[in-house]
Amino acid sequence: MVLYSILPPETIFGPEPREPLPCEFVLDQGPARIVARVHEGRVVVERVASTDPRHFLDARYQPGADAPALPAAPPLWG
């Protein structure tokens, strides 16, 4: 990666590496998208993965926008 920025790398990257947020791929009636669970059950759009460019102009699916709560994952057993 080549950064071309007036900020020094230590300011950009901080002292410790960031823990990746738990993400899930959502396929429903809306555009294909990746959502992240941030904290206290809040789920936000991380990235739109649609092939339709119009979806990228939709305010409901901008990165960081609140995404509807996801259903709880089914148990692996039982």
């Binding site: 990235r47 739109v48 649609s50 460019p53 990228f56 102009l57 901008q62 990165p63």
Partner: peptide, 11 residues
């Protein structure tokens, strides 16, 4: 984010 801006420009 380029992965969002580039499709926006296409749209």
């Amino acid at each position: 984010r380029y992965e969002h801006v580039l499709p926006q420009l296409v749209a």
